[in-house]
């Protein structure tokens, strides 16, 4: 019965020193579903995404992926990737001074038993990815180009393309559109909308409620470390999303004052 649930997190708790970032967070994402996390700055959205992608370890709670219990003590970025979970962060996901091909394969190079990288093959696959998936066809397109020469949209495209290349079952996108120009935003949203067509899932985090409403099937509202509300896309208007978010922001402002 649980096979159509791709990931289920139960009762996650996480503190950074005295700051309790997450308190009793539970959520699940179905196959072919795009779920959005909505919440104010500091609500805990990134912390949730980092726990799911293996960057952070929760203080307590449990995680099921494809119906199997995950041992959180051995859960890592590598493990998450091997289970088909890819993450696109707004920043800190590309090495600025490194060539594109290294960025595509960082942490999981095609290598022989001694750890030596198959550079030619990786460059070929990178070029193919740039041309086919990202539609970069200019003469200057090269697997050896440095990330620092790319525009914001191209960077995001590269990070998303990397997730596509490794054929993820669940793509987590943490504010992927925040720094982008309008035209580039359109491309990112188009990609997110295409995810469920292939039976894959996504967790989409954004400040822009219009974007969220456009791509997600279900909304989860996060407020000061807990999920306080959820609603389905077909039953919620953009205006209602705005109202709710404002309500929580006002609440936390009041409570923050005391």
């Amino acid at each position: 019965m649980s096979t159509h649930i791709i990931i289920r997190a139960t009762s996650l708790h996480k503190s950074f020193g005295a700051v309790q970032a997450l308190h009793d967070v539970s959520l699940s994402i179905k196959r072919g579903e795009v779920v959005a996390l909505i919440g104010d700055n500091g609500a805990g959205k990134s912390t949730i995404s980092k726990i799911l992608s293996g960057v952070l370890r929760p203080d307590s709670g449990s995680l099921q992926i494809n119906g199997d219990e995950v041992n959180l003590r051995h859960y890592s970025v590598h493990k998450a990737r091997s289970l088909g979970i890819e993450t696109v962060y707004q920043d800190h996901c590309l090495g600025e001074k490194q060539p594109l091909w290294r960025n595509i394969f960082v942490g999981r190079h095609i290598r022989n038993g001694l750890g030596f990288i198959d550079v030619a093959k990786e460059k070929k696959m990178t070029l193919h990815l740039l041309q086919q998936s990202l539609g970069l066809r200019g003469v200057g397109v090269s697997a050896d180009a440095l990330v620092s020469t790319l525009s914001g949209g191209e960077r995001q495209g590269l990070a998303i393309g990397r997730a596509m290349l490794f054929n993820s079952n669940l793509t987590i996108l943490d504010e992927p559109t925040t720094a982008l120009a309008v035209k580039e935003v359109g491309r990112v949203l188009k990609f997110v909308r295409s995810i469920p067509e292939n039976g894959k899932s996504a967790l989409f985090i954004s400040h822009n409620l219009h974007h969220v409403h456009e791509v997600a099937d279900r909304f989860l509202f996060v407020d000061r470390g807990t999920i306080v509300h959820q609603s389905l896309q077909e039953k919620t208007s953009v205006a209602e999303l705005f109202e709710r978010l404002e309500e929580y922001s006002a609440n936390s402002a009041i409570r923050g004052d005391k």
């Binding site: 960057v55 993450t87 090495g95």
Partner: peptide, 10 residues
């Protein structure tokens, strides 16, 4: 290049 990136990339 960026140690946070490196960590996030495993």
């Amino acid at each position: 290049d960026d140690i946070t990136t490196a960590t996030m990339m495993g």
